[in-house]
């Protein structure tokens, strides 16, 4: 397949993103016109009903933007670090690990602040990612896709039963958790976005700076070492960024699966594996996909809404199956 010029992909990506932002703000159970949107942004005419609808939708859309970009870039990083096409925050068990730590925090330490959510999610996600990766790389052939997927699934099952044990006696925690674990970008506020913005932007910049090294990492360990790359440091920094990106999102929105799996996969098909383009484009298209699946959830789930975590799983799981069918990976 001939690779398109990144230039076009960027433009199309920005157009799609702009379009999905507009759709997300204007479309929903209550559709509003563009004039209301302008009013809301300029803070005019605040008492009108339509304007307040728009103002409620703006943080949600912004958060979708940040979350989608974070998850997709996190997927890119994990796939490169593990050199494995099906690595993804949810496959690697990062989501479940983050959930476990957050549930632990809510149940035993009564944590409230969003910042401690983010911190716990990061620690839990990191530990689980390392555990799953170590599990998958035991044995001779290293972390093949199938070993990684099964190690992730197994660890997730194990951790969810621990979550259940903690939750069962605490019905109030259970209610909170039940809604959180579905994964939704609906509940975000401006403070949440401001809280995760610095971490997200820093991680994205670091991963962009790292992209040259990630390109080399894709060759093979031997080639990378002989080109003078510090393998472990590159892997570690990339993994840190990846887990940071998805843990922040998971802490605030709950586990949103499969975005990190499908977006980089398709971007790679179109644009090749040059990381600098791959990371930026995955960010662009990931945001659009998460925002659009949120909109789709609002359409399908009428009169309420269908949480975006469910939507991405419903769309992403068939994509996962498709990738496996396509994959000419060894041992499949």
């Amino acid at each position: 397949m001939s690779k398109l010029k990144p230039y076009y992909i960027y433009i199309i990506g920005i157009l799609i993103l702009a379009l999905s932002i507009v759709i997300s703000i204007t479309y929903g159970v209550k559709s509003v016109g563009l004039s209301d949107v302008v009013d809301a942004i300029l803070n005019r005419n605040i008492d009108a009903y339509n304007v307040s609808v728009v103002q409620a939708r703006i943080p949600r859309t912004l958060f979708g933007l940040v979350a989608g970009a974070s998850l997709s870039i996190s997927g890119v990083l994990m796939q490169s670090v593990t050199r494995n096409p099906i690595a993804d925050p949810s496959i690697l068990g990062v989501n479940t690990g983050a959930s476990l730590f957050i549930v632990f925090g809510i149940a035993f330490f009564n944590i409230q602040s969003k910042l401690s959510y983010v911190g716990l999610a990061f620690v839990g996600g990191m530990i689980t990612a390392i555990l799953v990766y170590k599990l998958a790389s035991s044995g001779y052939s290293g972390p093949t896709p199938i070993k990684l997927a099964i190690a992730g699934a197994a660890t997730s099952i194990a951790l969810s039963s621990i979550i259940n044990i903690i939750l069962m006696p605490n019905s109030n925690v259970m209610t909170t958790y039940r809604f959180w674990q579905i994964g939704s970008i609906g509940g975000a506020s401006y403070e949440d976005i401001l809280l995760i913005m610095p971490i997200t932007i820093a991680s994205i910049i670091v991963s962009l700076l790292l992209s040259e090294n990630l390109n080399i990492l894709l060759l093979s360990d031997e080639a990378a070492i002989s080109l003078g790359l510090n393998l472990n440091r590159t892997r570690l920094i990339a993994a840190f960024c990846g887990v940071f990106l998805c843990a922040t999102t998971t802490a605030l929105a709950g586990p949103i699966s499969f975005v990190g799996l499908m977006v980089p996969h398709f971007i790679r098909l179109v644009i090749g594996s040059n990381h600098i383009h791959l990371i930026i484009c995955s960010g662009l298209y990931g945001s659009s996909i998460l925002i659009l699946s949120d909109v789709l959830g609002r359409i399908l789930g009428r009169p309420g809404e269908l949480e975006s975590g469910i939507m991405t799983a419903l769309i992403g799981a068939p994509v996962f199956v498709f990738i496996i069918r396509k994959a000419k990976v060894q041992s499949l």
């Binding site: 099906i86 949810s90 896709p145 199938i146 997927a149 099964i150 699934a153 674990q181 579905i182 699966s257 499969f258 269908l306 949480e307 975590g309 469910i310 799983a313 419903l314 992403g316 799981a317 068939p318 996962f320 199956v321 496996i324 069918r325 041992s331 499949l332």
Partner: peptide
């Protein structure tokens, strides 16, 4: 049988989402 397990894991995720919903 490896591919079957991977496809199965995908289906598992799909149906868990449906059940959750």
């Amino acid at each position: 049988s490896n591919r079957l397990i991977l496809v199965g894991i995908g289906f598992q995720a799909f149906f868990s989402a449906l059940i959750n919903w």
